[in-house]
Every structure is written in structure tokens, then in C-alpha cells.
């Protein structure tokens, strides 16, 4: 009897030990990733959150805790709100266009095998281009007098504006450059999505009576691309929020903040005016915005799979 008890406790101990070892292995394996995440994401975010509550200026000797003062200032900062609005407008302009054009290009390329590889390459080329370098090319194309666009417009009797210096046109012009680059990327994602739709579904639709392309698109293609479209839209929105390089290279936020966007504003406050504390506070707001978009995607995906 007691031998049995001893045996069972020994077995219990062995089991516990094994479970402990298993847990240790699990933690060990997760450690490198956890350390990296801590060092690269969580600690910087936490320091930004801390800095946001101070009046720290880059290189300053003194730093004092000022509570929510940075956020209050942000609330009253006209430039911040303009950058915020500009970012939203820019996103509203570019996301539907680049997602729609990407889908359109993918559908056209998929519809006919003629020159498929060539078209795919052509549309994808802008993605591989370095935007800062391409910005100079765009600067020339959009030049008010010598630029390709205005020379062409002049041929048909239209006097084009100074695309990058007109407060009315500058956001649209920058948005166009974004669309030019992002469309190819979205196209590739949509092409991959299209590959995942069984050709038998299209055949079934034809037998079932979907004679028109529109019907087959609504019955097979669009539902089949639901997950892809969601992903592409979220990715494009995030990229669009993060617009910086074209602004920095072409307009520096001008004229009079007409093309100032959130990220550029943060950069200017933080690295030009050296107001690290204030920039950190804006970074937190920016981060919250990005998180919101990501959460919309997660929510939608869960709804989709259920």
C-alpha cells in the first residue's frame, strides 16, 4: 500500500518535472523573439510614452515632467490638426485609387495570357524604385514650366498649375505619386488572390447562367478576393498614413503646411525643432491611429472566417 503511494508520488513528481522541462523549453525557444520584441518594439514605445510626458529637448541637460501638457498643446496646435487632416485626405484619396487600380490591373492581366509577364513587370517596376530617388524624376515631370505634364496640357490649351507649389494641388500630386507606386504592389497581391480562386468556380458560374462578366465577377471573383481586398486595403491605408519620403524630398510640408502630414510633422518637431517630448506625444497619437486600423482588420477577418 505505502509502496503504491510512494510509486504514485514518484510518478507524479516525474510528470511534474517533465512538464516543467517542457515549459522551460518553450520559454527558451521563445526567448530570442521575446528579447528582440522587447528591445525593438516595447522598450522604444515605452520610452516614447515616457518622453511624451516631459518637456525633453534633444541634447538638453534638464528634463522635467509636465504631465499631459504636450497633449493639451497638441489639442490646440493648428499645425498638428492640419497635418492630421492632410493625412486623412491623402489616405482617402490614395487608398481607393490604388486598391481599385491594382485590382483592375490584376484582372486585366489575368484575363488574357498575352504579354502577362511583361505587363506584370511594368506595373511592378515602380514598387522596386526608391521613392526618394524617383522623387527627383517626379519633380521634373511636375515642373510648372518644363514638366512633362504641363507641356502636354499646354498642347491641348490647358494651363496646368504648379503641381507641387499650389495649396490646392499639392496633396493630390503627392497622392498621385503614391498611387503610381502602390498600384503595382497591390496588383501583385491581387494576382496572388486571383490564383487562389478555383477555375472550376468560373466554369460552374457559366453553366449556372452567369453569362456576363459582371455576374461572374460578383459571384466568384469579388467574394473570392474578400480576404485579399481586406488585407490590401489595410496595408495600403497603413502605408498611406506613413507617407513621408515624397513630402520630405519634394515639398517639406509646404506651401504653408498644405502638404504637411503627421509623420513629417513629427519629424519636424522632433528633429528640426528638437522638441523630442512633443514629438513623442504625437508619435503616440500616430501609433494609436495605426493600431485602430490594424484592429479593424483583425475584427473584420474574424467576422470573415466565422
Amino acid at each position: 500500500m505505502s509502496a503504491d503511494v510512494a510509486l504514485s508520488t514518484r510518478l507524479g513528481r516525474a510528470k511534474r518535472l517533465r512538464r516543467l522541462a517542457e515549459a522551460a523549453t518553450g520559454w527558451g525557444l521563445a526567448l530570442p523573439a521575446a528579447v528582440l520584441m522587447l528591445a525593438l518594439i516595447l522598450i522604444p514605445t515605452a520610452s516614447a510614452a515616457l518622453l511624451a510626458l516631459t518637456d525633453y529637448q534633444l541634447g538638453a541637460r534638464r528634463v522635467s515632467f509636465i504631465g499631459a501638457a504636450n497633449f493639451v498643446e497638441m489639442w490646440r496646435d493648428r499645425v498638428f490638426w492640419q497635418a492630421f487632416a492632410n493625412t486623412l485626405i491623402y489616405t482617402a484619396l490614395t487608398v481607393p485609387l490604388s486598391v481599385g487600380l491594382g485590382l483592375g490591373a490584376a484582372l486585366l492581366i489575368e484575363a488574357d495570357p498575352t504579354g502577362r509577364t511583361a505587363f506584370r513587370t511594368i506595373y511592378f517596376l515602380p514598387v522596386t524604385a526608391l521613392l526618394v530617388a524617383m522623387a527627383t524624376v517626379w519633380e521634373f515631370i511636375l515642373h510648372p514650366q518644363l514638366g512633362l505634364v504641363n507641356v502636354a496640357l499646354r498642347q491641348i490649351g490647358i494651363a496646368g498649375p504648379d503641381w507641387l507649389a499650389s495649396p490646392d494641388w499639392v496633396l493630390a500630386s503627392l497622392g498621385f505619386i503614391f498611387v503610381w507606386q502602390q498600384t503595382g504592389y497591390n496588383m501583385i497581391l491581387f494576382l496572388a488572390g486571383l490564383k487562389g480562386i478555383s477555375p472550376e468556380l468560373y466554369q460552374a458560374a457559366r453553366v449556372d447562367g452567369a453569362d456576363r462578366g459582371v455576374e461572374r465577377f460578383t459571384m466568384v471573383t469579388w467574394p473570392g478576393l474578400a480576404a485579399t481586398t481586406l488585407f490590401v486595403t489595410v496595408i495600403t491605408t497603413l502605408y498611406s498614413f506613413r507617407v513621408f519620403d515624397t513630402v520630405a524630398a519634394l515639398t517639406q510640408g509646404g506651401p504653408s503646411n498644405a502638404s504637411n502630414v503627421l509623420l513629417y510633422n513629427i519629424y519636424r518637431e522632433g528633429f528640426v525643432y528638437l522638441r523630442t517630448g512633443y514629438a513623442s506625444a504625437m508619435t503616440l497619437v500616430f501609433l494609436a491611429l495605426i493600431l485602430m486600423v490594424a484592429m479593424v482588420q483583425m475584427r473584420a477577418r474574424r467576422g470573415h472566417s466565422a
Binding site: 478555383s198 472550376e200 468556380l201 466554369q203 460552374a204 453553366v207 459571384m219 466568384v220 467574394p223 473570392g224
Partner: peptide, 13 residues
């Protein structure tokens, strides 16, 4: 005609 496909080809949504 009506056709039944090898993969059934049901509309997943």
C-alpha cells in the same frame, strides 16, 4: 445542361 464538377465548385460565400 447541368454539370457537377470534380471539386464540386460550390460558391464558398
Amino acid at each position: 445542361i447541368a454539370m457537377v464538377f470534380q471539386s464540386y465548385a460550390l460558391y464558398p460565400h
